[in-house]
Design a binder for these strands. Structure first.
Length: 299
DNA sequence: TAGCCGTGGTC
DNA sequence: TGACCAAGGCT
């Protein structure tokens, strides 16, 4: 007898059925998106979705793929163009990693996004989540795809906890044990768990009255207790080096030719020490170049 | 592995 | 208002 989902077959079925009727109509879920951009489109969307909300990604994704529809086209762009086009999506190192991944795909894989998870993991900026997301959603293969939404749903429904613990390799095994047998069914279930966590089983104020598995949720059965939160808390952003880096980069993105004198990136809230620290770290990351006392986006 | 890395919306 | 949160990954 196939072990499709030993502990909760109905849970898998109900989440998948709910997804069939409630899935949001997102660009990267449309057939014409896959027909036009293939696995590269999926890969780019997943890069942008790393820690950036769906609503902010959508318009940037269309513009990006319209400009650079293939790995080869992306690889041929300059880092300056890449960082500029990334605009305010945040975490601009991701833009550089995406560019690097495009170069690697062009060099190692003949310009075709690899299907193998290990080959995907070997690309810049691709980790456990993105590698399996591409293999599953672009190629239809059967892998556990675990993001923060999936981990929260599992923590609540299966473990009776209000929030998931810190991300761990064990999450992949837990999700793998739930996956239905068929490739197609597994892909749907992966997407369904993410969707449920994103729109119903949310971090704050979950909509349990709209949940397809509320009747089998361990956390609800326990009375929705606050079981604590072991996740790391984000460092304060206001006044941080991250904010200083963001401010410096914004000046360069907005500057004519992506170039500005160092003095022009001073900010009232950042002293010269923090400014220099931000600039140095941006240079170390390859996001900024210093030439003749001027700063510019990398060429 | 813990700390770090943007930006803007939400409550 | 400020803390929390977001389809993570790298070092």
């Amino acid at each position: 007898m196939p072990v499709s989902s030993p502990s909760s077959p109905r849970l898998v079925e109900d989440v998948s059925d709910w997804f069939d009727t409630h899935a949001r109509d997102l660009p990267w879920r449309r057939a014409d998106f896959h027909a036009e951009y293939g696995a590269w489109g999926t890969l780019v969307s997943e890069f942008m979705l790393q820690q950036t909300p769906v609503a902010r990604v959508i318009p940037h994704l269309a513009a990006w793929l319209g400009r650079w529809p293939t790995p080869a086209a992306t690889a041929a762009a300059t880092p300056a163009d890449i960082v500029q086009q990334w605009a305010n999506l945040g975490y601009p190192r991701r833009a550089l990693w995406l560019h690097r991944a495009a170069v690697e795909i062009t060099q190692r894989h003949g310009g075709e996004v690899p299907r193998d998870v290990d080959a995907l993991l070997a690309l810049s900026g691709i980790g456990d989540y993105t590698a399996r997301a591409v293999a599953t959603f672009a190629f239809g293969d059967r892998h556990p795809v675990v993001d923060t939404n999936t981990r929260r749903v599992m923590a609540r429904a299966l473990d009776g906890k209000s929030q998931p613990g810190p991300a761990a390799r064990r999450d992949l095994a837990e999700m793998a044990a739930l996956l239905p047998e068929g490739d197609r069914e597994a892909a749907v279930f992966n997407a369904a768990m993410m969707e449920l966590g994103a729109v119903v089983c949310t971090a704050r104020s979950p909509r349990c009255d709209q949940c397809p598995i509320v009747a089998r949720c361990a956390w609800v059965a326990a009375g929705r207790p606050d079981t604590g939160d072991e996740r790391r808390r984000q460092a304060r952003y206001e006044g941080s080096d991250r904010q200083a880096r963001g401010a410096v980069l914004k000046v360069l993105r907005d500057a004519d030719g992506g170039e500005a004198v160092a003095e022009a990136v001073i900010h009232d809230w950042a002293g010269p020490a923090q400014r220099d620290r931000a600039i140095d770290s941006l240079i170390a990351d390859g996001l900024v170049e210093a030439v003749d006392g001027k700063l510019r986006l990398p060429r």
